[in-house]
Amino acid sequence: MAEKNDASPGAVIQTRWMEVAVGLLIALLGLLAVVDSHRVGAAWAEDGPQSGYFPNIIGWILIACGLWVAFQQARRWRQDGAKVFVTLQDFKPVLAMVLPTIGYVILIGLIGIYVSSIIFIAGFMLFQGKYRWLPTLLISVSVPVALFVLFEIWFLVPLPKGPVEHLLGY
């Protein structure tokens, strides 16, 4: 998947950049672990390891692994110049999924999960699936309603709700 070589330059995300970025992020995560471990104590006390003992070791291994990945990639910077992580053309549909999903999660926080789900499913069906209004409406409303009955009424599992549900008395 990652080794497609046929894209025009400029319209791609190169694998080498991703490799380095992810490697550095992993190292950063390791650093976070190490720093906090020293706060809580990372030594081997007389009654066994302290709270931070294992996280500290894990942190250092993460730093080593992350830097090693980044370093390896830097060494092969030239050779890997043609490796493509994803072409812009392929990446557009991914963004078309990722961005609405992010929007959906924000919406859940604002207006509850059920109404957001209606909007999310309907939007996806209309813009990605090019469905007509009627089937879109039918599915996008019936699924959240079914979930509502299942979770809120049958199993009494409270999910995030917003003004619309409050109006209905939930």
Binding site: M97, T101, Y104, I113, S117, F120, I121, G123, F124, M125, Q128, G129, K130, Y131, I139, V143, P144, L147
Partner: peptide, 9 residues
């Protein structure tokens, strides 16, 4: 296009 958003939900 139908199942994907439902899975996300």
């Amino acid at each position: 296009a139908i199942i994907a958003p439902i899975i996300v939900v």
